[in-house]
């Protein structure tokens, strides 16, 4: 039981090893130690969602995880959603539907929405709005975000849009 531990984990597909203070949060490991500043800190109490990352495929609050708890696990941040500079359908839809302004909430929403769509590939608008409940946005009023997510779902499925708003 010392104050520092070595953690070994996979971040966005790459193996990473760091020696960290046990009280370091996963968010701070990602941002400060790994330079992945796409993950943002808004409240550090799990409410705003700006710090959301995927841990073993599940969307979680990185501000509420200790870095040592990510040992042997697979972490995906916003930087890891796309590969080779090619935007995902969701990211493209965000661009198309003006789903971001200042961009502070965007990484958390992209990660949350990616996880959500994996589980619910064909959601209706109500389901999308419900799923967005855990991410706060101060700029957009959410409409563009909702349209983007529905549009992305449609693109990925090839199904007809169920949104009342125009895609």
């Amino acid at each position: 039981m010392s104050d520092r531990r070595t953690v070994l984990l996979t971040v966005n597909g790459s193996r990473v090893e760091r020696e960290v203070p046990v009280r370091l949060t996963l968010a701070d490991l990602l941002r400060d130690s790994l330079g992945l500043t796409g993950t943002h800190l808004g409240c550090e109490q799990g409410v705003c969602g700006a710090c959301t990352v995927m841990l073993d495929g599940e969307a979680v609050r990185s501000c509420l995880l200790l870095a040592v708890q990510a040992h042997d696990k697979d972490v995906t941040t916003v930087e890891g959603l796309s590969w080779g500079g090619v935007l995902t359908p969701l990211q493209e839809a965000f661009h198309l539907h003006h789903a971001l302004q200042c961009g502070f909430c965007t990484p958390g929403i992209l990660v949350s929405a990616t996880a959500f769509l994996r589980e619910t590939p064909d959601p209706d608008e109500a389901a999308v709005r419900d799923a967005l409940g855990g991410n706060l946005c101060r700029c957009t009023g959410y409409s563009g975000i909702v349209r983007a997510i529905l549009d992305a779902a449609q693109r990925m499925n090839g199904s007809t849009s169920r949104s009342s708003a125009d895609a």
């Binding site: 046990v22 501000c63 509420l64 200790l66 708890q69």
Partner: peptide, 20 residues
């Protein structure tokens, strides 16, 4: 940790040890 971590982040709880 969804209840304890906020308390730790704000230093409202200062346990000497965390048993994970």
């Amino acid at each position: 940790g969804q209840s304890l971590m906020p308390l730790l982040n704000f230093r409202l709880a200062r346990p000497e040890m965390i048993v994970d």
